[in-house]
């Protein structure tokens, strides 16, 4: 049943966001700490578990795949509701701060990508 997949996905998201909120309160910040990340881990673990016990039906999988496929259109809608005007018209300092942060972060990726901590391969 398609609804099983959608319900599983929704359950993972709510649980993850709940745990993220609790984690945020425990460390004393007014933000959700990793809620979506926890939800993703939960979905990966639960979908792997059910593979062993009873195979997850293809209709159930479709309930998750549909939302996964809706990801790009949702991101397009997200882009269309950003406050681009505020970002562009706020003056040079904010724009330079944002651009510089992105440029430096991009430059760090190749450096960190060379680090493979906790992997067994020896070269």
């Amino acid at each position: 049943m398609v609804i099983y997949g959608v319900a599983l996905l929704a359950f993972c998201m709510l649980t993850g966001i709940f745990l993220g909120d609790i984690l945020g309160q425990l460390i004393g910040v007014q933000a959700n700490v990793g809620g979506v990340g926890i939800a993703m881990l939960l979905l990966i673990i639960l979908s792997n578990l059910t593979h062993h016990k009873f195979s997850i039906g293809s209709a159930t999988e479709n309930g998750v795949h549909f939302w996964s496929a809706m990801y790009i259109p949702i991101v397009v809608a997200m882009a269309a509701k950003q406050d681009v005007l505020a970002a562009v018209s706020s003056g040079w300092m904010a724009i330079i701060a944002g651009v510089a942060a992105v440029a430096v972060s991009f430059a760090m990726i190749p450096l960190l990508d060379r680090i493979h901590i906790g992997e067994d391969d020896v070269d």
Partner: peptide, 20 residues
């Protein structure tokens, strides 16, 4: 459609099939 609720729902869905 582009709000945080649907965005996060779709992001979580992409994890289905990710390599642990």
């Amino acid at each position: 459609m582009g709000g945080a609720m649907f965005r996060d729902f779709a992001i979580v869905a992409t994890a289905f099939g990710a390599e642990l």
